[in-house]
């Protein structure tokens, strides 16, 4: 009974695959038999089966697969000519150039970045990937190249520069489910929060003066204050400083080490400041360059 079902599924798989004509080479039979083997070989076998490619393998193939966002302007997006662009992509281009390989961009979503690395379907993820402890158990992060923190924006007439200034009856606007909400609930339980589900709702409420300030990722509030007259980011960086870093498949040490060296070398020429000026300046202005950019991994 089980056999019937399986053979049917396999049959369907074959039909489906054949239909696309390119029956993709199935990761070679060698690697699938490696999966079955256990014991001392396990580590080596899994590296092969999971399919991550070492630095030499990437160079040999002449192409590197880099996962980027295709709809998160200004970090990773596609411009009107169909070319990938943005802060992350600028860095990716440099990686390709220094490795001497072509780049194959893969359009990723926030939810599938880890899957892509764990299955070796991309070599590097450069998609505004915030370093967290949970993620570090699943993938290997290289040195960071950007800072992120929370920020608080308020009207020019009453700039909030410290959360201790918040009065007992004042409310701060947050978007539900964001790090801003978690952080304020945990560290400032006395401050009243006004929660909204969507960015647009929070924005309208804030513009209508429903709260004295609005807390969100600092990139978001900075962009807001620059796009809208009459608002100032009184607290540009609040709470734990998080960083954004490239990530590779867990255990892919050759590529990880190369990336770390690359980021250190690029630090010497102030590469990421140049990237900021080329890609983020329009959105965040020159004032925040040193807040956001991380050079040489430090």
């Amino acid at each position: 009974m089980k056999k019937n079902f399986l053979s049917k599924v396999t049959g369907l798989a074959l039909v489906g695959t054949l239909a696309v004509s390119g029956l993709t080479a199935c990761g070679s039979s060698a690697s699938s038999s490696d999966v079955a083997s256990t014991g001392e070989d396990a580590v080596e076998a899994s590296s092969e089966a999971a399919g991550f490619r070492t630095l030499d393998e990437i160079k040999e193939s002449g192409t590197i697969n880099i996962g980027v966002f295709s709809d998160k302007s200004p970090f990773g997006f596609v411009d009107e000519n169909g070319e990938y662009a943005g802060y992350d992509v600028y860095f990716a281009e440099r990686i390709g150039q220094d490795l001497g390989v072509e780049i194959n961009y893969v359009s990723t979503e926030a939810a599938n970045r880890i899957e892509y690395l764990q299955t070796g379907k991309v070599d590097i993820i450069l998609a505004n990937f915030t370093v967290t402890e949970e993620r570090a158990q699943e993938v290997d992060f290289a040195l960071p190249y950007m800072n992120v923190a929370l920020g608080v924006v308020s009207p020019d007439s009453a700039v909030v520069e410290s959360l201790d200034d918040i009065g007992a009856d004042d409310q701060i606007i947050v978007i539900s489910g964001t790090t801003a909400e978690t952080y304020l609930t945990k560290n400032y339980p006395d401050i009243k929060l006004q929660k909204y589900d969507a960015y647009a709702e929070a924005k309208t409420a804030f513009e209508n003066g429903n709260g004295v300030a609005w807390a969100n990722d600092n990139t978001e509030v900075i962009a807001f204050s620059l796009e809208n007259e009459g608002y100032t980011v009184g607290i540009p960086s609040l709470g734990d400083q998080d960083t954004i870093a490239p990530a590779v498949t867990k255990g892919n040490e050759t590529l990880l080490n190369w990336l770390n060296e690359e980021i250190e070398t690029l630090g010497a020429e102030n590469f990421f400041h140049a990237v900021y000026e080329a890609t983020l300046l329009d959105t965040y202005g020159a004032d925040y360059e040193d807040t956001l950019v991380l050079e040489g991994g430090k």
């Binding site: 369907l12 798989a13 489906g16 695959t17 239909a19 696309v20 390119g22 993709t24 080479a25 199935c26 990761g27 070679s28 690697s31 699938s32 490696d34 999966v35 089966a49 999971a50 399919g51 764990q118 299955t119 070796g120 379907k121």
Partner: peptide
């Protein structure tokens, strides 16, 4: 399928399947 069997099915083939 990549995780368990090590097959590298293309995204299009997976979608059609």
């Amino acid at each position: 399928t990549t995780r368990v069997f090590g097959w590298d099915m293309s995204a299009e083939a997976s979608a059609i399947f």
